[in-house]
Amino acid sequence: MEEQMKKWLEPFSTTDGKPSTLATMQEQVKEWIDQDKIDVFLGYKMVQGHPLPHFFTKNNLDEVDELIGGQARYSLEKIATKIAAEKPAIKIGLMVRDCNQRALNVLYVWNQLNPENVETINLNCCPSKLKKHADCSYLEPEKAAVYKKEVGIDNNMDVEDAEVFDMEQRFKRWMYEFSKCIKCYGCRDICPVCFCKECSLEHPELIATGTLPPENPIFHLVRAVHMGGRCIDCGLCEDACPVDIPLRLLYRKVNATVEDEFGYETGTHADQSPFNLLGDEVTLEPKPL
């Protein structure tokens, strides 16, 4: 635990090539708040010995001296989305790692946040299919235990590794993983790009209710399909899953298909998504009856 704690307190470096220290980041944030460039900054602060998400505003400007880039990742952009839903004009500053930035891009595409109201300070991190350089040791995956290797899917596998199993094996192994699900909805609740008002996972006509594990594999496949062109491979869902289902791998497979079919690399830019059928305005005429 102590070793881990040390890691969370490590200083950060920014991705824009400029050498940076905690102090310069703090100065930047103070300047933005002072000059009303932002109304609130979302970063981290040590609270009761834990690096926790923290809001910095004019009212607690002194606290910016305690702003850290602690390596316990939370989806600050999801918090920002919820604030912006209440107060659309609010200007928000965010500390972003690569995954947060990818999530922001998706949130811009889907009109959940307005890029004109968002300022970011970038931190280095996160090994991922989409961005290979990495120094976020927090994400170093745990080794799969013997039983899981024998009957399930090792969370550290790549899509290609997982496809070595023949179809029957593959189905059995994934069903073993899905059978552990306790339907906590943690994967959805923590996901920065899950923002639908009505979630299909809770729709009784799509997925049977009242049993654990949930109706499988449909529960997991519905979520997987919905992550096509949405999931930015941050791994927060897998982190939050109490039963260690290799969710990230599943969604990587879905997004590999999206990339093959549409040439769309989710989260790498804020241009239109092939799945966003509607423009700003609905132009479809209802058909005459």
Partner: peptide, 13 residues
Amino acid sequence: MKTHPVNEGKLCI
């Protein structure tokens, strides 16, 4: 809470 020693970032429903 991701750094909490009991649940390490996981919760039940």
